[in-house]
Amino acid sequence: MTIDGLLIYVLFIIGLALIGFGAGWFVDAAVNISKRYGIPKAVIGATIVSFATTAPEFLVSFMAALNGQADMAIGNAVGSTICNIGIAIGFIVMLKTVAVDDKSFNVKALMMLASGAVLFFLSWNGVITKMDGIILLVIFVAYMAYTYWDQKKEPKKPEDDAPVPRKGIWAKIKIKDSYLDVLMFLVGAVFVVGGSRLVVTNGTEIATQLGIPELIISLTLISIGTSLPEIITAITSYRKGFQDLSIGNIVGANILDITMILGVSSMFVDLTVNSQLLRYDYIFMMLLFVLVAFFGYRKKITRWQGAIIALVYVVYLAGLILTMA
């Protein structure tokens, strides 16, 4: 392999790392800035945090769509929903039964199922058009409105106003907190945008070099990379002994992945739907959606249920590998 060929892989990994670090900083800074200016918790949760946690997926898919790479745009969005459930729920819950403490889980789960079903229907003719995008964005607005209403009725707790603790390098920087928040926000945003660009550009090159379809790369490596915020949150929660892995938040992220990302992307360019998505990936996406909704209905997901979800994800990945053989 030439130096230029090796550099593509290095830049791809750097892109994923930039997304992982940047997304975390971006979220923490956004929350602190919002609290500092007295923005209600309901608004923070329903808008800033939701957008921030899905920023990696959004930027990768949006840039891919503008570049005419529909396989990558749709594959990343759909792959991220599958990855969120398979890894952030399946493999983590295998280790410990998790309580589903989100009181609005059942409604969110139904909206997630509806989002997936609508995407399946809209994709049936082989293209997601601007009109289809409007339909997805209507669902997105409905979800955001519900989330705002649901969080607004929650009683305010003293810790709601507490700033997010500084971690890593940011804990060592000695400047005024308000300035540090802005710096952290800007650096995080630059990392996510720059990392997304590196992932899209070099991910395409890797697919070309290895002869692997762009769609497969998007459904696996890129989707895992852009799902890092959700995956890292789940792992951290487990290590700290938290019973609630914010499964409701993962469900919410999946709704945004489908409705916001594909809705906005299709506003700028029609997205051609690869036939593999319809006959394979969408089916596994919907299967995982149904499993999470069904298992979480009783307000907890047990270890054996987590194992089933993880097994479905492994079978899904194995199927992708077989398609490359």
Rank of each mutant, 00 (worst) to 15 (best):
T97V: 10
L291H: 11
V264I: 15
W149H: 13
I308Q: 05
L219I: 14
V273F: 04
L210H: 01
N274H: 08
M324K: 08
I309K: 04
G86D: 11
K41Y: 15
M131N: 10
T226Q: 02
A318G: 14
G133I: 03
I231C: 01
G45A: 13
C83M: 10
L18Y: 09
S223W: 14
L136C: 03
L6Y: 10
T236A: 14
I128N: 01
K299F: 07
L311Q: 07
L186V: 15
Y37I: 13
L288A: 08
A77W: 08
L322C: 05
S266E: 04
P165W: 09
A318V: 15
N249D: 09
L311H: 10
G15Y: 02
G24R: 08
T81P: 03
A42W: 05
D244G: 04
V78W: 00
L311A: 15
W124I: 03
A77C: 03
G225M: 00
V315K: 12
S34K: 03
E230C: 11
T236L: 15
I247G: 03
V43R: 13
A77D: 06
A88H: 02
L59M: 13
A23Q: 06
I169H: 13
L278Q: 11
K167R: 15
T204R: 08
G38F: 02
I222R: 05
M1K: 06
Y146S: 11
A88M: 06
S34R: 01
L119H: 06
W25M: 13
G15H: 08
V269K: 09
F185D: 12
Y9C: 00
L215T: 05
D28W: 11
V190R: 08
A189K: 12
I85V: 13
D281P: 02
L317I: 15
P40H: 12
L186E: 13
A99T: 15
R303N: 11
T97D: 13
A145C: 13
L262V: 07
F58V: 01
C83Y: 03
E230D: 14
M111R: 04
A293P: 13
V141E: 07
P213H: 13
L198Q: 01
W170K: 14
T54D: 13
Y316V: 08
V27Q: 05
L271R: 03
A142G: 02
M72C: 03
L11Y: 07
A99R: 14
L59W: 14
V49N: 11
F120K: 09
N274D: 11
I13T: 01
G195N: 00
V312K: 08
L210T: 04
L136R: 01
Y313N: 09
Y297G: 00
V141I: 15
Y179G: 00
E214W: 08
T233N: 06
V273L: 04
I3A: 12
F58S: 04
I255A: 11
V264F: 14
M184Y: 10
I19N: 11
L119F: 14
G20N: 03
D181S: 14
P56R: 10
L210W: 06
Y282Q: 03
G263M: 09
D132C: 09
V127I: 05
T236W: 14
V27Y: 09
G22D: 09
V273D: 02
